[in-house]
Amino acid sequence: MSAAIEISGLRKSFTISLSGEGSIKTAALWWRKRHIERVEVLRGVSLTVPQGECLAVVGRNGAGKSTLLSILAKVYLPSEGNVAVHGRLAPLLELGAGFHPDLSGRENVMFNAMILGLSRAEALARTPAILEFSGIEKFADAPVRTYSSGMLARLGFSVAVHVDAEILVVDEVLAVGDAEFEAKCYARIEQFREEGGTILFVSHDLDAIEKVAGRCVWLKDGLVKADGDVPKVLDAYRGSF
């Protein structure tokens, strides 16, 4: 089995400004008092995710979980180290980030599918299936600003699982739909795994992790604290509270 994701010696640091918003005023003041600091969020993470695995990442707030996922999604460049992603990766957008409120659900689905890497023709062909899965076909032509947050989450999830990604990156979003839709999501994820898809997800819902994950990584202060069997890692993680 080949690796879907290979990470070695990954480090990421951010510059944070303690003096507030970026403005020319702030920049002009920097020469006097440097209100900027470097914060190292990831401090040397190495990780290999084989194809077809469902990996859960746990850790406290600020442990670097989301940063790790963002680097995989090519939103951030690593400060140091190597990241190799083999195959198409789709991040699951929370609450329809990238949906335009004035456009209809249908138009937004089209557009989001293209952002996630589908061609125009593919996006067009897949829109009916996406709308059907989301269960909001009835409102497909209403502007998205009239949608409830649950409807947005449904639509966002539906797009992400229909773009033929080989790797799905999920950052704490599964808990938004109702029970019925959640069951549908898990069923879909199961199907995705059976088809050989790789999943990387961050969650604070430890029960959900036990249900779906095949392996668990505990991130602590930007380092891998534990990596392996789900029950073992979760026990260690629970013990740290």
Partner: peptide, 11 residues
């Protein structure tokens, strides 16, 4: 204006 999207997806 597109920041929420830029923070999540690569393009």
């Amino acid at each position: 204006a597109a920041m929420p999207m830029v923070k999540k997806v690569y393009f």
